[in-house]
Design a binder for these strands. Structure first.
Lengths: 236, 236
DNA sequence: CTACCCACATTGTACAGACAAGTTAAATAT
DNA sequence: ATATTTAACTTGTCTGTACAATGTGGGTAG
């Protein structure tokens, strides 16, 4: 029985307005009391909704001031290249080296696919990340065609695939699993990253779980960590 | 001004009893109403305390049943070797190769030390983790002497340094930052891990932040990921 | 004996109100 | 004009209550 929870309705309403930039990052939400009037409820319920958004990382609260909309994208615990998003120091560029296209699943993927996924075809695209005009990360991406249509790279919101998912499709990252290996660069990867064959490379296999049922994003990253190590931080 | 928050007192009371095994893992806490009587308060306040413990990962709640004490140690987002703690598949052993001793800070540490830490001496110990009797991880550890006394390895609770901190010193991990690099094995590391010199090795520099002010734990890990990749998962 | 139902304990949601504590800007005093 | 006080508004804490939803075990009807 899909029970309607009032706090959940409020939570989803606010979340949608954040995702669609009606409440842009950095701005303050209406006060708790204003939401009470708007939804005909009490602060207890509104605060419960805001607490959930807090846990999901959409907002932060400031005592005596209000609830501020956060910049989305610092996925807690997610691996990120040192300097990424702290983009003042480095110039980060992304080039799509293989446009999204429909292919068969690649056996490279180390995570077991669901039956739904196996029965579907697969959308694949490849990107290379540059820092200071030097290639640092080679990135292969896959997802099931029956869960999400192919998206042309020139339609990416601000060039970001994840931002596109959030703002255009209202899909959020719920979690991820990763496997990390240190390997020697193959000929192909060495060429694409401009390094020596056999140089030590960090290989990351990753599966993102999303808020859309049956949609997982699979990634296969090769990182040249000699100059730009991978960073990862998280807090409880 | 008495900034004592009632829910925080209850939260700390329950946390201490969990850490000292008065409420052992797997057991159920007293019901919310029992805590209400015990602390002379209402369910709203007790539930706030339990919500905090939920967020900290000490308990989980089961609708209609109660609040269950969780096994501590699956630090969200923490890197762990595949198979670690899922110890049914693999035999994991830890050998302390260098007993805790007082030394000067090692320049290997990539994180900036606080003034407090720099002015203190440093406790160092080294461990090697084995899976199926094969060495997989070489681990250097440091922390400031003025923040925590040296602990002999034979006093570790169940051989675990983190369990010792939690149960004997009531110190919890609050978060961590990591830097990951893929490097070639040096002569020393190759010997200790039983691999070829120059083999690709995952180098992890990590700083744990703890609930004790001024106490950070610094780690420097070298992982042979060819057979046992590093795993990392997290969920929102 | 089995299957069902019901009472009971537990957590989940929601309402209504009170006061504390932090922030800000307008009003006031110097 | 500047500094201080005040008032208004915000989020934080807490009380008290009611009912809903879920899990458990015992009693009852078959």
């Amino acid at each position: 029985m899909g029970k309607i929870k009032k706090y959940h309705q409020i939570q989803e309403y606010i979340k949608k307005r954040i995702q669609t930039q009606k409440y842009p990052p950095g701005s303050y939400l209406p006060s708790e009391n204003e939401f009470c009037v708007q939804f005909g409820t009490t602060r207890t319920t509104v605060r419960k909704a805001l607490d959930e958004l807090l846990k999901e990382g959409f907002i932060e609260k400031e005592h005596g001031k209000g609830s501020k909309v956060l910049e989305r994208g610092k996925y807690l615990g997610l691996l990120s290249v040192k300097g990424f998003s702290g983009s003042t120091d480095y110039k980060v560029k992304t080039k799509v080296t293989e446009e999204p296209k429909i292919v068969a699943w690649d056996p490279l993927i180390v995570f077991p696919l669901s039956e739904d996924e196996k029965s579907s075809q697969c959308v694949y695209f490849q990107r290379v990340r540059y820092i200071d005009d030097k290639p640092v990360v080679l990135e292969n991406n896959w997802y099931a065609l029956n869960a999400l249509e192919p998206i042309k790279s020139n339609e990416f919101v601000e060039g970001s695939f994840f931002k596109t998912l959030s703002q255009e499709y209202l899909i959020e990252i719920m979690g991820a699993e990763q496997e990390l290996r240190s390997v020697k660069a193959s000929v192909d990867i060495a060429k694409k990253l401009g390094i020596a064959v056999g140089a030590p490379i960090l290989h990351i296999s990753i599966r993102f779980r999303t808020s859309r049922p049956n949609l997982n994003l699979y990634g296969d990253l090769y990182c040249n960590t000699t100059e730009y190590p991978i960073r990862n931080s998280y807090f409880l």
